[in-house]
């Protein structure tokens, strides 16, 4: 552990001089201090230089609440995300984060404007093509994982391949690769109930990656995890970006998680704040 490499003498001195030998008080204050530090190690921010993969031009999405009232969840948003970028979408609840993510992921269509992902305009795709698009280009990760409780880990990961109609031999290979990548190869035949929360989210990430998508959309991926697991997940996402060059969009309202991103986009009332 790197902690053991800390200058032991300096710490001893601080405890004896400033805390009068009360190491418990020292530790308590140290813990408080550590909480103020960002979860990210002080790394150099990645500067994405790839082509623009996601392009939103003046996108709005309105919902009809009832006959008279409509609500505008996303209001004239324009943004660009480059390939290999990690972007955090933050903002208070009801700010339109999820709607924006659904629009990018092809679960929803814009009321106005254009959403272009990988050169395809979402609004123009048919239902069947949209499903294909979600299957091949997008990988979804959810806050509550949404694994199939009665399918074993590798089967759960296989589900998108089932919808893609992939050959069985290719499937086994693809599944093994992604399960290896999320470091769960030894638990490949476990049921979700036998896994921890962090492991389940890794399974969900493996499932999202199994079709080698260009974009990974994570909706509050750490919302249901403790900080240690959250860190591990974010670290995993960074590794994925490094190895696969996947563009990752993380919806979160946790600033510590957002700190991992290359870029933070703040939303409020459906508009981009920064």
């Amino acid at each position: 552990m790197t902690v053991s490499k800390l200058p032991k003498r300096a710490i001893e001195r601080i405890i004896t001089q400033d805390y009068k030998g009360d190491s418990v008080a020292f530790l308590r204050e140290l813990e408080e201090y550590l909480k103020t530090l960002p979860l990210t190690p002080a790394k150099k921010k990645h500067k994405a230089t790839g082509p623009v993969l996601i392009e939103l031009v003046d996108v709005s999405r309105r919902y009809k609440l009832n006959r008279k009232n409509t609500v505008t969840a996303v209001d004239g948003v324009s943004l660009e995300v480059r390939q290999g970028e990690i972007v955090a979408l933050t903002g208070p609840s009801g700010s339109g984060k999820s709607t924006l993510m659904h629009l990018i992921g092809g679960l929803d269509r814009p009321s106005k404007g254009e959403v272009k992902v990988n050169g395809q305009s979402i609004g123009e795709l048919s239902e069947g093509k949209l499903a294909r698009f979600r299957n091949q280009t997008i990988g979804f990760v959810f806050q509550f994982f949404y694994l199939q409780p009665f399918l074993r880990l590798n089967r759960n990961v296989e589900v998108p391949l089932m919808f893609a109609g992939t050959k069985r031999s290719t499937r086994t290979k693809a599944v093994r690769e992604v399960v290896d990548a999320v470091d769960l190869a030894d638990r490949a035949t476990f049921l979700p109930k036998e896994l921890s929360g962090g492991q389940m989210q890794r399974v969900a990430i493996a499932r999202a990656l199994v079709n080698k998508p260009k974009v990974l959309l994570a909706d509050e991926p750490t919302g249901n995890l403790d900080s240690k697991n959250s860190m591990a997940i974010m670290e995993l996402l960074q590794q994925i970006r490094e190895h696969l060059g996947t563009t990752i969009i993380v919806v979160t309202h946790d600033p510590r998680v957002a700190a991992w991103a290359d870029r933070i986009i703040k939303l409020e009332d459906g508009r981009v704040q920064s």
Binding site: G105, L107, E127, G128, A131, R132, R134, N135, Q136, F140, F142, Y146, Q148, V159, P160, F163, A164, R207, N211
Partner: peptide, 16 residues
């Protein structure tokens, strides 16, 4: 219905 929605997100078509 949630599971169906998740499947749809993972790329399932209506016919699937």
């Amino acid at each position: 219905r949630r599971e169906i929605a998740v499947f749809r997100a993972l790329g399932a078509r209506q016919r699937d």
